[in-house]
Design a protein around this nucleic acid. Structure first.
Lengths: 290, 290
DNA sequence: ACCATTGCCTGACTAAGGTCAGACAGGTGA
DNA sequence: TCACCTGTCTGACCTTAGTCAGGCAATGGT
């Protein structure tokens, strides 16, 4: 298909959106707060948030956010306190009044959304919901950022922990990572700062005949599957391996991870015999790098 | 399904949208024009537009729009001239420089859209395009306005003409409306001011046994089909008929209009025998009103 | 103990977006 | 012809949103 169709659709949708759904934003208005401040209340949420995160999520200048926070404080809607772990960082929380306002904001937002879709039949509402969920997942997936991180750093550790936790969940007899040895390099995919996928490389052979990297601890957050994140990560790791002068990539996997297996096959990996003694591995794949 | 899921999805999408796609808007920036002015250039378009329409479409205060137009004029991007038909109204047109700018705006917007979806595979791009097109159609359909209009007025005439034109196109031997007699009442569905569907009622029987209204000249714009506009219009006309104390509704149709026939059956209409001598009618339906 | 860095805050400033009241020209019906 | 309406324009005014440079306190490495 032509990318022209895609951009046309995107732009057409953009127009419909700003005219029709965009007014949802304005539901935040009319409760005495300007839009920016209301959005901030929304973003702080019932459980509070770090100032740093707020800045990232709202994409605001540090000075401006600070001013908005002071504004909320002067209205007794929020308060900030230093983070005990690092007293330079600050954490914002809503006061009772702030939480009450948040609730009213949510109610209004819901009402407006409901009114918007009220003329639709149930069947159409289902179609709309499904279409929006699909679009949401894909757009979010498209804007995921792949980043090489320190294989022993916090970002790598956090995503590997989630990977191990899932294996423990899915394997019939559980999973024991032991003390995982650090990999040569590690890539984490993040969306809004939280890791949603990861994977690393380890050199397992380097002699006259071949230089082989093994892909290890590759994982995609369950709620992000079906958006092509896995293939994208795989391609990325292949690029990294190539830049490390690897001539082939291998990986092993367990028979329970059926989506992963399908993806490896789609991506040009072919089944080979066992090449290690990993007790959890049942299937072994290899791909020759061009 | 619960409407809660729908509003959740809508709100979640809303968030993703403002963070990710919303920046498309900013593609209008950086060409020396503030966003509002750039949007106005976009809305005037290559073929110009009435100031009145611009105000409606952009939802702006008359004074503010006027100021924006003066701004564009002072930059030699647009010019306004009185409408010859009513010299109070004014019509805005882009100058050559304005059209050149419009083109650059469109290019930038396209480029940004492309960059946004670049990480997606072709298959995902197809899915995204389809999802957005569906969402677009449904959201636009949900915000269509049904309005009773003068059966002989311009709005009614315009949509009936399009209906007749389509019949002429679809019937193997063409269609001749003759001099259509005005109906008792007529409803037009509009989106952004242009008619997208219509239908009227005519009392065809009123005696001791029954008061019967006939639905005539019901039509949905081809590009708007599949969004439930037909059923909504049908329900609306039934309400109108009820308010006119009708006890039953009849309608006739041609065998070629298969989507319409399916819709009538879904909506509780049952086949009856011929009740008029309309030469184009082949099928006849009736529904008893509660 | 020192220094660079990080995280947040403040003051000063600007652009953008928008409202409101009134003015004024053109049009319309009695 | 007059009174009133419609559509647009102008001046005065205001809020919101945001940038930038510099400041201070807490932290981490040496």
């Amino acid at each position: 298909m032509s990318t022209g169709l895609a951009t046309d659709t995107l732009r057409r949708f953009n127009r419909t959106y700003t005219q029709r759904i965009g007014v949802l934003e304005e539901s935040f208005l009319g409760l005495g707060l300007p839009l920016g401040a209301a959005r901030l209340v929304f973003e702080i949420g019932a459980s509070g948030a770090a100032v740093r995160d707020l800045r990232d999520r709202l994409g605001l200048d540090s000075g401006y956010l600070s001013r908005l926070l002071r504004d909320l404080e002067s209205r007794a809607l929020a308060s900030t306190a230093p983070d005990p772990a690092d007293r330079r960082r600050r954490h914002a929380t809503l006061t009772d009044a702030g939480r009450a306002l948040l609730e009213r904001l949510e109610t209004r937002s819901d009402e407006l959304a409901l009114r918007l879709v009220a003329p639709l039949t149930e069947r159409q509402l289902d179609r709309l919901t499904e279409a929006l969920a699909t679009a949401d997942l894909l757009v979010r997936a498209a804007t995921v950022v792949l980043r090489a991180v320190d294989p022993t750093g916090p970002a790598a550790t956090e995503s590997m922990d989630r990977y191990f936790a899932e294996l423990a969940d899915r394997f019939p007899d559980g999973f024991d990572p032991g003390t995982p040895s650090p990999l040569d390099c590690f890539t984490v995919a993040t969306s809004d700062g939280t890791p949603v996928a990861c994977g690393g490389l380890q050199r397992i052979a380097d002699d006259a005949t071949a230089t082989v990297d093994e892909i290890k601890r590759m994982w995609v957050d369950p709620s992000w599957r079906g958006a092509g994140l896995g293939s994208r990560l795989l391609r990325h790791l292949e690029d990294v391996a190539r830049s490390r002068r690897a001539t082939a990539i291998r990986l092993d996997t367990n028979g329970t991870l059926s989506e992963a297996i399908a993806m490896y096959e789609r991506s040009g990996y072919r089944r080979i015999g066992r090449y290690n003694d990993n007790p959890y591995a049942e299937l072994f794949f290899e791909k020759t790098l061009a």
